[in-house]
Design a binder for these strands. Sequence first.
DNA 1: CGTCATTTTGAGGTATTTCAACGAAGGTGG
DNA 2: CCACCTTCGTTGAAATACCTCAAAATGACG
Lengths: 235, 235
Amino acid sequence: MYDLTPRFDSVPFLNSGPAAEPMLLTDFQRKTLEHIGERVHARAHAAIYDAGDRADAVFVVIEGVLKSYRKLRSGKVATSTFLFRHDIFGLAEHGRYLNAVQALTPVTLHRLPLAELVPLIKRDPHLQFKFLMKVTQAVRDAQRRAILIGRHDAVGRMAMFLVMMMRQHRLAVGHDCDVPLPMSRTDIASFLSLTSESVSRAARGLQRRGLVAFEGRHLARILDLSSLEKLAAAV
Amino acid sequence: MYDLTPRFDSVPFLNSGPAAEPMLLTDFQRKTLEHIGERVHARAHAAIYDAGDRADAVFVVIEGVLKSYRKLRSGKVATSTFLFRHDIFGLAEHGRYLNAVQALTPVTLHRLPLAELVPLIKRDPHLQFKFLMKVTQAVRDAQRRAILIGRHDAVGRMAMFLVMMMRQHRLAVGHDCDVPLPMSRTDIASFLSLTSESVSRAARGLQRRGLVAFEGRHLARILDLSSLEKLAAAV
DNA sequence: CGTCATTTTGAGGTATTTCAACGAAGGTGG
DNA sequence: CCACCTTCGTTGAAATACCTCAAAATGACG
């Protein structure tokens, strides 16, 4: 009647909330994955793979931060996501990676060869379901980012970015007003589809309004969270 | 060692190309899905569900076109995707739909209750894998759209949109220069993160340059495909 | 400690957004 | 079936915001 061919909105499936089925692997699943995978270490600025490389594995971030980006014909780079602990990456099409991935800090990865992973998840539907949840979350994030980029004001986009980074950091560290920004302003700019000049001005604008204090280039101290969130939510 | 908690870049998995494992359902899988699902019909402009509704099913588009959108606090609507034949939708979080979905034309849907679908795909890993491929494709599309919106020129975005619609149409009809546009200019505008005025001007600009001829509001005749694609690719 | 890339700051250009009004289309009721 | 009304779409002119180009300042790295 119908085939599952191309794109689609969204995706479904379950709640994916803290309350619902937690997306934790069971001990057995974890052991199984570690069995087929291998640890990979990389230094800051190291390239994990380039766009167009033959896609033979997916990776799980164990430690460190990376960026996933694409070079456009115009020479600009479009950063699609920043990757943190527990994130998975390796999006491919026609057997080739779609994005390039580069380490921003020293990283430890778990490399899962597709030749082993695909048969494994085809044998273990519950493990596959964890991956399905992860991919679903990726769709949610991508939609959120599309809304973010749709905004036309630079400071609003910067505010949303800081809130994103804060949430990301809190998942790991808990409540904290100091948000580390491992990426460069240029990276932030390409993620927000702005020029680095606009990012600089937006950051200065937030600081002038007393919402954030930037200490150096890799730390943002949130001073007025509620105002920042109000600004970020004012889409 | 790590849990599969939140977001991640991308996603992996296989080629998903015409050559590779075709994303067609086997006869058995199709029959199984039809067994748990039910047909749903809706008229044009009918709401399938609203954002925040309890998410208890996902849908497959059998016939017709829909839009998936989100109302923003500012009153603007952000259209996340248009949904065509074979597309799946029903993205949820914490048990609630994230987007609202509305029919643009009369539609026929296949409604798959989660209470039945989830156990089914947990029993049938090969069927689940088809869904995994679909979700992966959604991530690809969302990334592509993010790049699209990142462009700062309205005519370029309009060109990309027309190329997208053309490819979508060709999947169904084959080679054809007449591209139907079931959605309104306002819908296009909110999909491209532009004002409807800008869409109107961009359309007029493309027509003036002899690339496209708009016949009425719901048909675009592609006159100079190569130039249009060149414009769309000039990111 | 010196070099070099990144970041910041400034001024001007250009694009889209806004605001406002007209024209066209679609849907409803008589 | 026609007329009315409401919504959507188009066009014009002005304002705002970002981008571009250029140069100085900061910070990173060997």
